[in-house]
Design a protein around this nucleic acid. Sequence first.
RNA 1: GGCACCGUCGCCAAGUGGCUAAGGCCGAGGUCUGCAAAACCUCUAUCGGCGGUUCGAAUCCGCCCGGUGCCUCCA
Length: 485
Amino acid sequence: MNFQIYNTLTGNKEDFTPLQAGKIGMYVCGVTVYDYCHVGHARAGVVFDTIFRYLKHIGYDVTYVRNFTDIDDKIINRANEQGVAWDEITRKFIDAFYEDMDRLNMERPNLEPKATECIPEMIDMISTLEKQGKAYSVDGDVYYSVSSFADYGCLSKRKREDLLAGARVEVDDRKRDPLDFALWKKSKPGEPSWESPWGPGRPGWHIECSAMGQKFLGKVFDIHGGGKDLVFPHHENEIAQSCGATGSAPVRYWVHNGFVNINKEKMSKSLGNFFTIRDILDKYHPEVLRWFLLSSHYRNPIDFSDSNLEEAERVMVRFYEFLDDSEKVLAGFVPEPVSSENGISKVREKFREAMNDDFNTAIVQAILNEELRRLNQVRDQATKTKKKQRGPLLQELFDGLALMKEMAHILGVLIDSPSAFLESIKQKKIRELDLDTDKIETLIQERTQARSAKAWADADRFRDELTEMGVLIEDTPEGTIWKIR
RNA sequence: GGCACCGUCGCCAAGUGGCUAAGGCCGAGGUCUGCAAAACCUCUAUCGGCGGUUCGAAUCCGCCCGGUGCCUCCA
């Protein structure tokens, strides 16, 4: 199964060919575990989780590696601020990371190495660079010599002069060149440290991904992902280090997701305009957040706002109401052992076309919406048809439903049970509006009585009262149900 | 200052040379309904501006206007 993927390195969409037939090695930069994850991290997670699911779906044997940066200045600072051990901080936020990602239906990568578990590999790589004169040590620190790598800037499309011209880097006279970056940092007394040929210290940030990528996926692997903000300097430096150490470019396809914006501005820690995943999941169902995050192409920025989340919620409710209704209509129906297909292979083909075109999830959502409309018609028609003649329609509904779920599951949505999903939305709204459910039930009973007496004016008055509270009434064959507007 | 990117219906968002510019939200009209709701049907854009290339451009090129990101840790 062939697909196209946008490669930051070449700036083009390319036909993907794996290094080894049928297999894909994919490394995605994880998080530095010193704080709770925000919605920006959620986007990166959801995007690559979706890609992971799809690649497996089309038959690839994928090895997905995602690291934890569990040693770093920010972690040490946070530990000092709070007066706790650094590894207490990392343990806490790794736990929190899993809580958040699990709630978002994220599949676990095959390997999730921590930087501190791969220090020997990093030291090896730094030593190799030093032996070749591509790195130099100064008083316990080791720097990479950018001038040793002619292609520096190839990923971010920048020339070394351009970088220097706009450099806001503090002048560090220990570096031979302002662009040189730390491979190894000497530790101060009391800081976490590892023994090395240069004395006790800790690895620089960039070397960890080079070392871990190579350790788990080999000197050259297929896909390396991360947020756009990692293109420079992180991934640029990674290329420099790996090329320097192994002589070959480490990654064949570089894939970067766009930012989550708030009011057109990047959501980020430093701007302080971020929402943590757990804050948002208090307000919205995880699948609502996922649907929203996949509603625009992964490379484009996406604007985070309540109105956009609310729209996603309305859409998800529509899908789940359909699922809920369909389950009822299909209750007791025994499908044909061999699916009749009913032309749904065309839909599957459209789905694959969309995903094969650089993972265009926005188009997948359009396809799902079209299927929803079509299957609602089938469902309505089935309901209107005499029970004995419903068979073919129910089969069509059954097959369509199965395909809808198959596609949605790649996006990581429509996984919850319809009743659980709808109930959670309902309860959330009841809480928000601070409604009295007993009173609602009573009013509905009174309305039902009025209706059976054909006292329409009374019935309508009860309904008006409910409407004012924000409660919506639906009279169904199984009786009156209610939900929140 | 340098380097990238973006500007499509009221809103969100696909489309990157050629059938009638996807899909969703909101809105309007209709079918259904005691009336509603839900569902379904119908309706709503020539693509920031100007100029160019081309038989043909939202899609390519140039300029202008507006916005963002990166150049420092950042998904």
